[in-house]
């Protein structure tokens, strides 16, 4: 099997989208992460779920656990409102990590090895020109591997 055989179409976000929208897309789609695309719909970066959470938690609380502890329960439930109009691009480094991508003809071993090496539960599948054609989630990969094992 190749990446093209198990790739599916997933919702994506752009760097100009608000962080709140990115969180909503991930939560409603029950996705393990998000693919951020540029204005030509090419993968710009691939964020595992915990990295999307990083966008949503204000840096001050992330970097200083003591400060997070001082926030009372009523305000703690609303921490993400402090993000205001910040966009995905505002919260990412100027040069984010290279997107986690595979070619359409990549084998499942290649996909699995890439996910394991980069600790990413989501891989973007691209064509020869680098355009996004689909995505493979960890769950989908494991399901297909398990099913192919049963077939044997």
């Amino acid at each position: 099997m190749q990446a093209r055989d198990i790739a599916v179409t997933l919702p994506t976000v752009t760097v100009g989208d608000p962080v709140a929208k990115a969180v909503r897309v991930m939560a409603l789609g029950r996705l393990p992460g998000l693919i951020v695309v540029d204005d030509q719909a090419r993968p710009w970066t691939v964020l595992p779920g915990t990295q999307v959470l990083c966008l949503a938690v204000p840096g001050a609380y992330r970097e200083d656990p003591a400060l997070a502890r001082t926030i009372d329960e009523a305000h703690a439930d609303l921490f993400w409102e402090e993000l205001g109009d910040l966009t995905v691009g505002d919260c990412l480094p100027r040069q984010p990590a290279k997107p986690v991508t595979v070619q359409l003809d990549a084998t499942l071993l290649e996909v699995a090895a890439l996910m394991a090496r980069l600790r990413s539960p989501l891989v973007a599948v691209v064509d020869r020109d680098g355009a996004l054609v689909g995505a493979i989630t960890l769950e989908r990969l494991l399901t297909n591997l398990a099913l192919s094992g049963l077939g044997d």
Binding site: A66, L67, R69, T70, I71, D72, A74, H75
Partner: peptide, 12 residues
Amino acid sequence: AVMALQERRAIT
């Protein structure tokens, strides 16, 4: 809102 902050919890 400021008075609701719990400074004692900063020092564990």
